[in-house]
Design a protein around this nucleic acid. Structure first.
Length: 483
RNA sequence: GCAGCGUUCGUCUAGCGGUUAGGACACCGCCCUUUCACGGCGGCGGCACGGGUUCGAUUCCCGUACGCUGUACCA
């Protein structure tokens, strides 16, 4: 049987980075096994529904470099892929459970439930629906239940959990997991608004869509026994389960907005490359037992194995992500990145530059920064002549005799043919040899005059990219006004 | 509270009874050098604790501690 997995997000907002990792692991597992990865939208909570969320989720997965084989957009023979379009399915399946005696109607109001939980907590008991004292099919009897239903009394359908023995299942990440049946709650399956809860919808859909492996976050581990009971109640075969470790904040709590960026959009906007982000989150909780850090998507697919997924949660190390981004930054062809730099440059007041020039600037500066988006600020002087000059740098390297040492160079640079870094290098070295000067007496003043800053790429390379005209104009202007 | 899960350098991790406990990020130092980086070299730094099992435990078992998640007519 072919592998079929699903990513089943709830469309309540932007895609969380942890959600992206869950989706990615599902995708990697599916592709590693030549199987299908399905997108299913779990929009059964009307109160939390966000219109644009579904598109945002799909867009971010595409940006990250993967897509789904079936889903609301692609379609497929197991559709529809939005749970809100499958409500009848859940209702008929809930009815089957009622008829089998595996589920029952309940009429309790939320106030009554609150009071029940309060009482239980006061007496030190775990809050749990007490089937024997509440207003439901078992306490009210069949006649009364039918009467209330006929009258349109608001009702829900609850799972009749067999409260003896234990529920055990094998988790592909954690091994055998055991729960005592007595601790499992009579979960609501169908809400009074007619929509299913996650638990019912999830099981019905996974079964009908022939999902073979349920790969989801660890937060679902405690409700998995309920799902097992449901599969049994329907008489269905269970899929294999794999619960992924959580992505954590630095304080080890579940990664959340309080501690900074958590949405994929945030990382995209911040300027991270999709490949770097994917590479990084793939390695948060999984490792192919290698000393390598950099993996392409196809390599991730090739090596991915659920057996190698870690059990413990992983703190999201932003610094390491930045490092990884810098690795990708340096590996790309500058020309391919030029259009993106041009787009970023549009937000600044600099004169327009060509794509070729942009590529040269990328090549020149990328080893010094982590983000392509840092270029306009770190390398502002590549786009506009400096207005301010680093005071500390100037006082350190511009001495009374510096003007005299530098001035002759203007003419020499003027007479170059190519203005290449090699040519500039040769000229300067010949000059300092003849004048018996240390290179630093020339190179730092040049950097100051031309860039205004004390940090940057190699000076001759910088001058070459800037070009003869611009370089000389900055030098003469500085000599006249600031020296 | 109850339940489940988890615990190797600060962080991500390798390890699946015998290793000088390996790599990466971060940090520190040195080298290179035209500043800053990159790169190279080196350093710092870890098996939560206590019992077993075993000739031998980071590794297997049981406790303890700590942490996390769950405990909704949310997913």
């Amino acid at each position: 049987m072919s592998v079929r997995v699903r990513f089943a997000p709830s469309p309540t907002g932007f895609l969380h980075i942890g959600g992206l990792r869950t989706a990615l692991y599902n995708y990697l597992f599916a592709k590693h096994n030549d199987g299908e990865c399905i997108l299913r939208i779990e929009d059964t909570d009307q109160t939390r529904y966000v219109e644009s969320a579904e598109k945002a989720i799909v867009d971010m997965c595409r940006w990250a470099g993967f897509d789904f084989d079936e889903g609301p957009e692609q379609g497929g023979k197991y559709g529809p892929y939005r749970q809100s379009e499958r409500t009848e399915l859940y209702q008929t399946h809930a009815s089957i459970l009622i008829e089998n005696g595996e589920a029952y109607y309940a009429f309790d109001t939320s106030e009554e439930l609150d009071r029940m939980r309060e009482r239980q907590q006061k007496s030190g008991l775990a809050p749990k629906y007490d089937r024997t004292i509440m207003r439901n099919q078992t306490t009210l009897g069949e006649d009364e239940t039918s009467r209330l239903l006929a009258e349109g009394e608001p009702s829900v359908i609850r799972l009749k959990v067999p409260h003896t023995g234990e529920i055990r299942f094998n988790d592909l990440v954690r091994g055998e997991v055991v729960f005592a049946a007595r601790d499992i709650d009579d979960q609501i399956l169908l809400k009074s608004d007619g929509y299913p809860t996650y638990h019912l919808a999830n099981i019905v859909d996974d079964h009908l869509m022939e999902i073979t492996h349920v790969i989801r976050g660890e937060e679902w581990l405690p409700s998995t026994p309920k799902h097992c009971i449901l599969y049994d109640a329907f008489g269905w075969e269970k899929p294999k389960f794999a619960h992924l470790p959580l992505l954590l904040n630095p304080d080890k709590t579940k990664m959340s907005k309080r501690h900074g960026d958590v949405f994929v959009e945030d990382f995209k906007n911040k300027g991270f490359f999709a490949e770097a982000l994917v590479n990084f989150i793939a390695l948060c909780g999984w490792n192919p037992s290698s000393d390598r850090e950099i993996f392409s998507m196809s390599e991730l697919i090739e090596y991915f194995a659920l057996e190698k997924v870690n059990k413990a949660g992983a703190i999201f190390d932003y610094k390491k992500l930045e490092w990884m981004n810098s690795q990708y930054f340096r590996s790309y062809n500058p020309s391919d990145l030029a259009p993106e730099l041009l787009r970023i440059l549009d937000q600044y007041d600099y004169p327009k530059v060509s794509a070729e020039y942009a590529a040269q600037v990328i090549k020149l500066l990328r080893e010094r920064i982590n983000f392509i988006g840092d270029i306009p600020t770190f390398g502002d002087y590549m786009f506009v002549a400096p207005k301010n000059f680093d005071e500390e740098y100037k006082s350190k390297h511009w001495q009374p005799e510096t003007h005299g040492n530098i001035a002759p160079l203007v003419g020499m640079f003027e007479s170059t043919v190519e203005f290449s870094h090699q040519e500039l290098h040769d000229i300067v070295h010949a000059y300092i040899t003849e004048k018996q000067l240390a290179l630093k007496l020339i190179i730092h003043p040049l950097r100051l005059m031309i860039t205004g800053k004390q940090v940057g790429a190699g000076m001759f390379e910088t001058m070459e990219v800037l070009g003869k005209k611009e370089t000389l104009s900055r030098m003469t202007a500085f000599l006249e006004n600031n020296a």
